[in-house]
């Protein structure tokens, strides 16, 4: 398969990449636009970034989003890792297939449904909607992604390492901390990154489950855009793209290390 790519293939790849990234490229370029008009180029400038960092509401939302992403990703990582262990380790218990399906269902569940059902739950429980309800919602959403990432590492994990540790006098819980976790941590960290990114990006579920005082960054952007696109929005979106890209790069590096570790 080392034939040079045909011109058709090259064209297809170029078109596909353009389709995916041209809008983002335009957004990034226009975030450095000196003109107030979104569609007219007025030369390079970083004034929208300066304005962005003076915009209290925007900064507050960014703070909410980051705290939310970090917290929900951490809880989701713990729960998702436990679910992955249960799925790979528990052997054949009754209802295992059902359990597996139930853990993975949120992966393909339309977000509107997840959001709406959580909203109904919170209303039924009479919870005050706000930061904590979004945290719970995002944990629910992202923990199944963590479970998938960690499980793919655990299936190749050599159980005899754990048996060796127990054989040497290490109780099961400590074995997990001293042997299993140090060996699967790249996968766990990768899961955390993924969960963080997903939470940072989410608009739909957050809109359903949040309350006053906890407006996430995507929600703030969305509500501002409805009043008209300001160049400042381009700047904040560019920063988000940067954060998400960095996260995904780390995620893929960790996944690569996970694969190397399990060989």
């Amino acid at each position: 398969m080392r034939r040079g790519a045909s011109s058709f293939n090259l064209a297809a790849v170029a078109l596909g990449l353009a389709f995916l990234y041209l809008p983002m490229a335009i957004l990034v370029i226009f975030s450095f636009n000196a003109s107030r008009l979104v569609t007219v180029w007025g030369g390079w400038s970083t004034r929208w970034y300066a304005e962005l960092f003076a915009d209290g509401a925007m900064l507050e939302s960014a703070g909410v989003s980051i705290r939310l992403a970090a917290l929900s990703a951490s809880i989701a990582t713990m729960l998702g890792t436990l679910a992955a262990i249960a799925l790979t380790r528990a052997g054949r218990f009754r209802g295992r297939t059902l359990f597996t399906g139930m853990v993975y269902a949120p992966l393909v569940m339309p977000e509107v449904i997840t959001g709406l059902s959580l909203l109904l739950l919170f209303v039924a429980l009479d919870l005050d909607r706000g930061f904590w309800t979004v945290t719970i919602a995002h944990t629910t959403l992202t923990m199944c992604f963590v479970a998938v990432v960690v499980q793919s590492r655990l299936v190749t994990f050599d159980r005899s390492l754990e048996e060796a540790a127990m054989d040497l006098g290490c109780p099961p819980g400590r074995t997990f901390l001293l042997i299993t976790l140090p060996l699967i941590w790249p996968a766990v960290a990768a899961g955390w990154m993924l969960a963080f990114t997903l939470s940072l990006d989410d608009l739909v579920i957050a809109s359903f489950t949040t309350g006053p005082g906890a407006t996430t960054l995507p929600m703030r952007i969305y509500s501002q855009v409805r009043l008209g696109v300001k160049p400042e929005i381009n700047a904040v979106c560019t920063l988000m793209i940067a954060v998400v890209t960095a996260m995904l790069v780390v995620f893929s590096l960790l996944s690569k290390q996970t694969r190397a570790n399990s060989e």
Binding site: D158, S160, L161, E163, A164, A165, I179, L183, N261
Partner: peptide, 8 residues
């Protein structure tokens, strides 16, 4: 162990 199972 048959495969030694050393902690890597």
């Amino acid at each position: 162990f048959q495969n030694y199972a050393l902690f890597p």
